[in-house]
Simulated scan of single mutants.
Amino acid sequence: MTFSLATWNINSVRLRADLVLKLLSEESPDVLCLQECKSPVDKIPTDLFAQAGYGHMVARGQKGYNGVAILSKQPIREVGAHDFAGLGHARHIAGQLENGVTVHNFYVPAGGDVADRTVNEKFGQKLDYLTDMRDWFRDNRPEKSILVGDLNIAPREDDVWDHKKLLKVVSHTPIEVDHLAETQDAGGWVDVTRNDIPEGKLYSWWSYRARDWDAADKGRRLDHVWASADIAAAAHSSRVMRAARGWEKPSDHAPVFASFDL
């Protein structure tokens, strides 16, 4: 049986509920993982999503900040919500589907503007968050699991518009890339997107600061879909829905899709 999954940093689920509904209507993924919902759970417009066929949700929320949610067509039960690095932020939720697949939805801290933890607390929090993720997955080796989300790191040279220019820019610095690689290795995670699309520039985020984001195309691949080693071979049909970045009043992120034969 094939099921499809999408991950999207929506940058306010209430402000952009109409865009969520547009995506659900046009693409109809079986599961949609949202980050940066910026809403308490009880304020997420679940009635609208249920009317669109997504009557099941697990989520963690905060007023105005962070927040993660998994919308599903089929029943899903919460199996975890960890406060990595003890930040007290709503940045992780895990749900298990009826087919036995566990979906981890993450929103890793962005890390601020300066890539130096001695002068930028947020950068230190980001590194600590990834270290805690690494240690947790080392102790809890994932099986039949998918990890998705805005991980706020573009790891490969072709995941950014200019590797050399961004080496000192938060999201592409060597120390962040190393921390992400250690986290991936600790869980035996496979980068599904790059397995399917092994070569070429690939982005999922374009800054609001660009006057014409599409023409400038100075993007980064910050949003990821990983699979545990036991099911990675079942993944296929990965893509970034770039067009969504051009919708009216969009998120600065585009949805990333993958399908699994499980």
Rank of each mutant, 00 (worst) to 15 (best):
L15P: 03
L15K: 13
L15A: 09
R16V: 14
A17Y: 02
A17S: 14
A17L: 10
L19Q: 10
L19A: 15
L19R: 15
L19F: 02
V20D: 06
L21D: 07
L21H: 02
L21C: 08
L21P: 08
L21Q: 11
L21E: 13
K22S: 11
L23D: 04
L23S: 14
L23V: 12
L23F: 14
L24W: 00
L24R: 00
L24A: 05
L24N: 03
L24D: 08
S25P: 11
S25F: 13
S25T: 14
E26A: 15
E26V: 06
E26M: 10
E27Y: 15
E27F: 08
S28K: 15
S28L: 05
P29L: 11
D30Y: 08
D30E: 08
D30F: 07
V31Q: 02
V31K: 02
V31L: 13
V31C: 06
L32D: 01
L32R: 02
L32K: 10
C33P: 01
C33S: 11
L34E: 10
E36W: 14
C37L: 07
C37R: 02
C37I: 08
C37M: 13
K38F: 15
P40C: 06
P40F: 08
V41N: 04
V41C: 07
D42T: 11
K43Q: 15
K43P: 00
K43T: 07
K43M: 13
I44D: 01
P45K: 07
P45E: 06
T46P: 05
T46I: 07
T46F: 05
D47Q: 10
D47W: 06
D47I: 13
L48I: 07
F49R: 02
F49P: 07
F49D: 12
A50W: 07
Q51P: 05
Q51K: 13
Q51W: 07
A52L: 08
A52K: 08
A52E: 12
G53R: 02
Y54A: 05
G55R: 12
G55P: 02
H56W: 15
H56A: 05
H56V: 04
H56M: 04
M57F: 05
M57Q: 11
V58N: 04
R60P: 01
G61Q: 04
K63V: 15
G64V: 13
Y65V: 14
Y65H: 12
Y65R: 09
N66E: 07
G67Q: 04
G67F: 03
V68I: 14
V68S: 14
V68G: 09
V68Y: 01
A69D: 00
A69M: 09
A69P: 07
I70S: 00
I70Q: 01
I70P: 03
L71R: 02
L71C: 01
L71D: 01
L71G: 00
S72D: 12
S72H: 14
K73N: 04
K73V: 12
K73E: 04
Q74T: 09
Q74P: 06
Q74S: 09
P75A: 14
I76T: 04
I76F: 09
I76R: 01
R77L: 08
R77Q: 12
E78H: 10
V79H: 03
V79G: 05
